[in-house]
Amino acid sequence: MGLFTMTKRALANVIGKPATLMYPVKPAKQFERSRGMLEITIEDCIYCGLCSRHCPADAIVVSKDDRTWQVDRLRCIICAQCVDVCPKTCLRLVPEYKKSVAEPPFVDFFQGPPAPPKPEKKAKEE
């Protein structure tokens, strides 16, 4: 009886498909809801800084004067708390993961477009 079970299992293992994915060749399983990485549509950002204040990992730095938004990819825990609080819904999580890198910068830096002409002082250009 035991031998029969064993033979069946052995045959199934020989003939059947592998349980693993051939990862680099076949993409990893990702779903519509998967939290892969954080992205921003910088044009819509109003630099209110809510995302940086609510970030549990202190990964986001926003500068209103310089009109910049930056995220430290190594600190970010992809919890989507910033996505929830963003008043302009310009932050979003996409299912794809950030490609791995071998050296700095690990901080993704986004420079917003200059402020609309009239109000405030002129945006800094570098």
Binding site: R33, S34, R35, I77, A80
Partner: peptide, 30 residues
């Protein structure tokens, strides 16, 4: 191997394999 099927279902439903991040104070997020 069996566990992997469970993890896939959790990722499908919540977006995370082990850190689901679905629960929030006052209910669930999505």
């Amino acid at each position: 191997r069996i566990r992997e099927a469970i993890l896939d279902d959790m990722e499908m439903a919540t977006g995370g394999r082990v850190i689901q991040g679905l629960c929030t104070v006052g209910g669930i997020r999505k």
